[in-house]
Design a protein around this nucleic acid. Sequence first.
RNA 1: GGAGCCGUAGUUCAGUCGGUUAGAACGCUGGCCUGUCAAGCCAGAGGUCGCGGGUUCGAGCCCCGUCGGCUCCGCCA
Length: 593
Amino acid sequence: MRRTHKCGLLRPEHVGQTVCVKGWVNSRRDHGGVIFLDLRDRTGLLQIVADPERGTPEAHAIADGSRAEYVLDVVGEVVMRGEGLENPRIPTGQVEIIAKTITVLCRAEHPPFELDDEVIGLEQRMRYRFIDLRRPEMQRNLQIRHTAAQAARAYLSSQEFLEIETPLLLKATPEGARDFLVPCRLVPGTFYVLPQSPQLMKQTLMASGCDRYFQLARCLRDEDLRADRQPEHTQIDLEMSFVEQDEILETIEGLMVEVFGSAGRTIAGPFPRMTYAESMRRYGSDKPDTRFGVELTDISDLVADVDFQVFRNVIAGGGQVKGICVPAGGNLSRKDLDDLTSFVRDFGAKGLAWIAVEEDGLRSVILKFLPEAIQQAIVERMGGKPGDVLLFVADKPSVVADALGRLRVKLGHQLGLVDKDRIDMLWVTDFPLFEADPNTGGVTPMHHPFSMPNPECLETLESDPLGVVAQLYDLVCNGAELGSGSIRIHDPEIQLRVLKVIGMDREEAEEKFGFLLEVFRYGAPPHGGVGLGFDRIVAILCGQEAKDVDIREVIAFPKTSTGRDLMLGCPTAIDAAQLAEVKLAVLPEEDEV
RNA sequence: GGAGCCGUAGUUCAGUCGGUUAGAACGCUGGCCUGUCAAGCCAGAGGUCGCGGGUUCGAGCCCCGUCGGCUCCGCCA
């Protein structure tokens, strides 16, 4: 019989109907005379009653032999449950099915874990992902992902974007992440690479007159994994022609309002904007969590001449001293402070100085190096109140920012300063185009080499590359980067100059990016866009804390931290014949070099 | 490339100072039970302590290696 209803949708209004439902046995409760089955499908649970008297002996016999995760076809009558027998915990709890016929559609081995367990090992879940995905939480996550994707498509379509697919087999270009390689059988010894992002293809589409493009694009990078990083992830990738930065940001704000709204999370544009320089100064990060204060305070000028060698020498050497005021940080134990010190060492800080503000004065081992007036000035500038602890890092600016920025976030969560219900969207703008490359001594693009420098920086592009600010912006949410974009270069001469600055002469640029330069030479519109991390967005929509996003929870079939798929059991070796077809040989594992 | 945590029953875990027969909960199997809904009661089965080596009279426990999972740094334009 054809399915007439989904399990989770039956209600008192269906009472009296004979229905056919199909699904998995979620649980079975055998009372000897009567057996209750909870039947589960995507919509939820429904109680099936197998009663040899009210139903049929045959149905009761099948129910008796059924086990967890058997797939059943149940035909029966919808009835109201008796007085006091309702189950308010499930939406179908007012009704039940008196089974007339039960058919086993598929038997099932005992599942390796119970679906309603609170704690299931990640390894088990990945190994048996097909069972893990049956759990309501995972079904919900996939539903939220789908709805968010639909919202994005609907909004962008309404804004006259075209969804266009771009190739998965691409040309290798330098820079960026390590590529996944795909051998080309037809031209042995040559390779395609899988896209790290559709960046160059979407810029090409702008030159092709598509005006507005978007794609839910899979992006592949052969780099080490993290909880928030998989070898393949999905971006809402979009690009717009004949626009300036403001129009792009407004469009993305509209998109995010719709996408977050699709999951019932109300946000409103316009989002606040902050320059990169301000963000680094106040938060020590280019992705600040603005849900709480504890901003960084510079006290370099106050301690430049004090007897404390650590501070004085750092400042004399061109460094700085900054601190954060930790509210009620006085509760931090000695061990806590040791842990925090060890924490900041991971990010290059040599130590962590502290001053406790107490009712009857200050307490710190460094007070003896600081004149009283300086002590007071520091406390005053940092807004220290009794009970607070002031924490300081002295180092070069990049280390100070990184160490204190991360410390701030850690403490913000540890001390419960973060309002987890808030969604703070923020634009960070005016990123530098380049950053120093300690490996080569030269410079390297902060994002990618296709972003347009601010007009006033064009003159100093070659003379002061590190000072060049670009029309580059990140979308930040609760301290997590959701996306990154820019106005692109569409002038081949400017593109060549930027490539030159990162060490690529004209010949090399033509070889590596010749097609892009050619695209520009035949007439490209001013354009720009963004790539938004769809997995991260969905994770936040599913209620994850931005700091601890685990995108494996919103990806149907994720990889482990070493890039393995435990369900498929890949990657695997490839047999010789298959390798021979693409003229490849695997080198033996050696302990060389 | 580096650092750390973990690996014991089907699952989640406990396992004292290195000491006799490795435990619990849930699940599973069988029995009882006509209103449960994480059903209940009774009984039972279930272990290469990831793998390999070493130390020791004796190793789940200590050491070395290895495999796997997780986290972080580097990396990820």
